[in-house]
Simulated scan of single mutants.
Amino acid sequence: MTFAKLTDLEVLDKMADAARAAILPFFRQAGLTAENKLEAGFDPVTVADRAGELAMRAILADHRPEDGIWGEEFGQTPGQSGRTWVLDPIDGTRGFISGTPTWGVLIALSDDTGPILGAIDQPYIGERFVGSPEAARMTGPMGIQNLTTRSAAPLSQAIVFTTFPEVGTADEGAAFHAVARHAKLTRYGMDCYAYALLASGQVDLVIEAGLNAYDIQGPIAVVQAAGGIVTDWQGSPAHMGGRAIAAANPEIHAEALEILKSY
């Protein structure tokens, strides 16, 4: 029997489903331990991170064996198609081991120019945010919703997110807080879920530093499909990581970027 080849979006959904099934049994379970990947500092990894990535890699082996893979836990696997699936099985492992529902599964399909499509999936809440050239949508407990970022407003009315109060280096922290001083409200600690909130029109800016490609490519695809903009702090592409600013619209992006560029 011959089966029709799945579309890229169908493959993405199968991967997200597989990651949910692999990861959720470990969430909020007594006895879950975390290894530290850093000699200085704390960058945790758990059996759930590894199980989630292996589950997604198994889907790709079945449905996209010609594509490359770049995953946080198991590194890079070359492909022949010129396309790469960029995977972070648990973005926000600190939140995961703390029991907060703000971590997520990040998936992106990319070429040399950056992400083509991507997803931010929150398995415990049951929300999946997907961005592609055709649409941006969220599926969850309240059904299917189209994603649209906020319309233009001055920075003085903005809600700004970052994950860590220190942001990165001392200079990077100073740059972020210079933007935050102009904003109406600053919030911390949401990891990838902050980008989902931006794509769904709840917040205006997410500013981070020290990112890897697998931290940002899924969010880039979702935010841009919803009408937002994501660059580095100089206005250049951010898909390889480093410093990133995600904005609901070009106007607030330009206002915040002008401050960041001065640091």
Rank of each mutant, 00 (worst) to 15 (best):
Asp8Ala: 08
Asp8Ser: 05
Lys14Asn: 02
Ala16Pro: 01
Ala22Leu: 10
Arg28Gly: 01
Ala34Met: 05
Lys37Asp: 00
Lys37Ser: 09
Asp43Asn: 09
Pro44Trp: 00
Pro44Asn: 01
Val45His: 04
Val47Cys: 05
Ala48Gly: 09
Ala51Cys: 02
Ala51Leu: 06
Glu53Arg: 03
Leu54Asp: 09
Met56Glu: 14
Arg57Asn: 04
Ile59Asp: 03
Leu60Trp: 01
Arg64Asp: 03
Pro65Tyr: 01
Glu66His: 09
Trp70Met: 10
Glu73Thr: 00
Gly75Val: 01
Gln76Phe: 14
Pro78Gly: 02
Pro78Phe: 10
Gln80Ser: 11
Gln80His: 08
Gly82Ile: 06
Arg83Phe: 11
Arg83Tyr: 06
Arg83Glu: 08
Thr84Lys: 05
Thr84Asn: 04
Leu87Arg: 02
Ile90Gln: 09
Asp91Ile: 00
Gly92Thr: 05
Arg94Pro: 01
Phe96His: 04
Pro101Met: 07
Gly104Asp: 12
Leu106Asn: 04
Ser110Pro: 02
Thr113Ser: 10
Thr113Asn: 04
Thr113Gln: 15
Leu117Cys: 13
Gly118Trp: 12
Gly118His: 07
Ala119Leu: 10
Asp121Asn: 15
Gln122Cys: 07
Pro123Met: 01
Gly126Met: 05
Arg128His: 06
Phe129Glu: 04
Phe129Asn: 09
Val130Leu: 09
Gly131Pro: 03
Ser132Val: 04
Ala135Tyr: 00
Ala135Ser: 15
Ala136Val: 05
Thr139Tyr: 11
Pro141Lys: 13
Gln145Ser: 12
Asn146Gln: 15
Arg150His: 04
Ala152Met: 03
Pro154Asp: 03
Ser156Asn: 09
Gln157Val: 02
Gln157Met: 07
Thr163Tyr: 11
Phe164Trp: 10
Pro165His: 06
Gly168Asp: 06
Gly168His: 05
Thr169Ile: 05
Glu172Phe: 08
Ala174His: 09
His177Arg: 05
His177Pro: 04
Val179His: 10
Arg181Thr: 08
Arg181Lys: 15
His182Ile: 02
Ala183Asp: 06
Ala183Met: 03
Ala183Ser: 15
Lys184Pro: 00
Tyr188Leu: 14
Met190Gly: 13
Met190Trp: 14
Asp191Gln: 13
Gln202Ala: 13
Val203Phe: 07
Val203Asp: 04
Leu205Asp: 08
Leu205Ile: 05
Val206Ala: 10
Leu211Cys: 08
Asn212Met: 10
Ala213Gly: 12
Gln217Asn: 13
Gln217Ile: 12
Ile220Val: 12
Val222His: 10
Val222Leu: 14
Gln224Phe: 02
Ala225Leu: 10
Ala225Gly: 12
Ala225Pro: 06
Gly228Lys: 08
Ile229Cys: 07
Val230Pro: 03
Val230Tyr: 02
Trp233Ser: 09
Gln234Lys: 15
Gly235His: 04
Gly235Asn: 11
Ser236Arg: 15
Ser236Gly: 14
Pro237Arg: 14
Ala238Gln: 08
Arg243Asp: 01
Ala244Trp: 08
Ala244Ile: 14
Ile245Met: 15
Ala246Arg: 11
Ala246Leu: 12
Ala247Gly: 14
Ala248Ile: 00
Ala248Gln: 06
Glu251Cys: 02
Ile259Cys: 13
Leu260Asn: 08
Leu260Trp: 06
